[in-house]
Write a protein that binds this DNA or RNA. Structure first.
Lengths: 146, 146
DNA sequence: ATATAATAAATTGAGTACAATCAAAGAGAG
DNA sequence: CTCTCTTTGATTGTACTCAATTTATTATAT
């Protein structure tokens, strides 16, 4: 291999991870102005998505769903509780398990949050076919890791 | 619209951002065991990529390249300097500009880093056509934002 | 029944991310 | 030249993110 090509694999433009990493942060950043009126960060928002859909969830199950561990989730959930959007309580059957349940106030937030996805997708210039492809590839990548 | 469909847009599986966010973190996580022997974090690694390729770069240009601001880069670059991989110095022409230049020790790291991309792609189960498509879509997303 | 292993959260510490603010330096208009 | 505006990094404060450890609880194997 020519000497000047030996290091080509280390070029930023050769990486698949870099645009993934950059695009992720840039898109999450686009949520901020729309989530701020709801007093939610992006991480809090995706946690609320699970509660809106399921009503309640253990920290462990939430972590598996969001690919996040308790070290990240504990402060996030405490913050959501402080805002009054969720309630945290130990399972009576297994005291190790902490359940998190959406409150009525948290549930009322859903009607305002329902506008967010459309607002954000207004910033993203992918047509529906491209979006579908990207979605497909991302899940294939995510579920096919290691 | 039926009442039970009104909130479908808020389901995690309907989001394009969520798999993007999750896949990004999961893939970055896969770098750790391979970067640890080089004493680099992922953020430090992509910064080094720019220095390996260009030799030196201002903080501003690096930030534009990596989509990161000085609030993130300043501690990253100080850390790289503390490890002896880069040198930081002000431009004499414009004292506001801080240049960061790779050291010889930083340059020696390149020969070990050149193995990393292949090691990580071993964890990713996408064929080359899928990887190409994903790459394409991510850059279209990234450059077509807002 | 008791010692041991496994599980679920919380805690801790290091390292990002990023908005907001600040200070220094340079550019430009009058 | 001088005042203002802009540019560039650094700093600060808030909020993750994650590896590693700890604590409490439950399950399991003698």
């Amino acid at each position: 291999m020519a000497a000047d090509q030996k290091y080509d694999v280390l070029k930023l433009e050769k990486q698949i991870c870099f645009p993934l990493y950059a695009a992720s942060r840039e898109v999450v950043k686009r949520y901020r102005p729309f989530l701020e009126p709801l007093d939610l960060t992006y991480t809090q928002y995706i946690a609320m998505m699970v509660f809106w859909e399921q009503g309640k969830c253990s920290v462990k199950d939430l972590g598996e769903r969001l690919y996040l561990d308790s070290g990240t989730l504990t402060p996030v959930l405490k913050s959501l509780e402080a805002k009054g959007y969720v309630r945290r309580y130990r399972s009576t059957e297994d005291e190790r398990v902490l359940f998190v349940e959406v409150t009525e106030e948290g549930m009322r937030l859903r009607d305002r949050a329902v506008e967010v996805p459309a607002q954000v997708s207004g910033c993203v210039r992918l047509n529906s076919e491209e979006a579908r492809q990207l979605y497909e590839l991302l899940y294939r990548l995510l579920t096919g890791l290691e």
